[in-house]
Amino acid sequence: MITAAIIITFFGFFFCYSTSKRAVYQNSIKLQAYLKDSYTKGNTLGVALLIVGLIVSIAALGWGAGIFSYLVILMTLGSLIVILTPLRFFSKYTLVAVSILSFIIELSIS
């Protein structure tokens, strides 16, 4: 459940980052080009995903711990996206591999 909150928050922040005018734009990801062109759709979807990530975090951990962990997740992912996106670190395969590995680790621990 925490992995789902992290992935949803990642995509929400990435969508909002991609619609920013100050973001470094590169053609490596087609989704980023689409989001850059349609500002309102991308920003609305990004904010909606951020809210859904918060709700999932609260549902998994409770009110206090959910909000606190969501803020930590948001700060961590936000800094990683801002630092690593201009370096073209994120690709479809990297995101899928990290997500699957994270789900496997989460399910094996619990």
Rank of each mutant, 00 (worst) to 15 (best):
F89W: 11
A33W: 00
T9R: 03
Q26V: 08
T76M: 15
D37R: 12
A59I: 09
F11K: 01
V96C: 11
G78T: 10
A23H: 06
A4N: 05
A5Y: 04
G64C: 01
I51V: 14
M1L: 15
Y93S: 13
L87W: 04
M1I: 11
L45K: 01
L95D: 04
S57V: 04
V98D: 01
K21T: 14
M75E: 14
A48P: 00
D37W: 01
A48M: 04
I83T: 09
F11A: 01
A60Q: 13
L49V: 01
T44D: 01
A23S: 14
V24K: 06
S102A: 15
Y34F: 13
G12F: 03
Q32P: 00
S57D: 12
L31Q: 04
A97F: 14
V24G: 05
V56E: 12
F15T: 01
L49A: 05
G62Y: 06
T3V: 15
S79D: 13
A33V: 10
A97I: 13
K92Y: 12
A33M: 07
S69E: 11
G12M: 05
A33S: 12
L31E: 06
A5F: 10
P86S: 06
Y25M: 08
V98N: 03
F11G: 01
S79W: 15
P86L: 09
A60F: 09
F15Q: 03
A97N: 06
I55R: 02
L84G: 04
I73R: 04
W63Y: 11
K30N: 09
G42H: 03
V56D: 08
F89S: 06
K41I: 05
G78F: 06
P86T: 05
I100C: 07
S18I: 00
L95K: 03
A23N: 11
V52A: 14
T3N: 07
I7R: 00
L77I: 15
E106S: 14
L49P: 02
M1A: 15
I67D: 02
S110N: 15
I100L: 14
L84S: 07
I83D: 11
L74T: 12
M1Y: 11
L61I: 09
A97V: 10
I105Q: 08
T94K: 09
F103N: 10
F15I: 00
L45C: 04
L77N: 10
T40W: 09
S79R: 12
T76D: 06
K41A: 11
T44G: 08
L61G: 01
S108C: 10
G62S: 08
F13R: 07
I8H: 02
K21G: 02
G62L: 07
F89D: 02
G42A: 03
L87A: 13
L61Y: 09
I6Q: 04
S99L: 10
M75G: 15
K21E: 14
G62I: 01
L50A: 09
S110I: 15
G53L: 07
L87E: 13
L87T: 05
V56W: 07
T94H: 02
I109H: 09
S28T: 10
V98E: 02
A97W: 03
V98P: 00
L35G: 01
L54E: 03
I29L: 12
V96G: 00
T3H: 06
S91W: 03
F10Q: 05
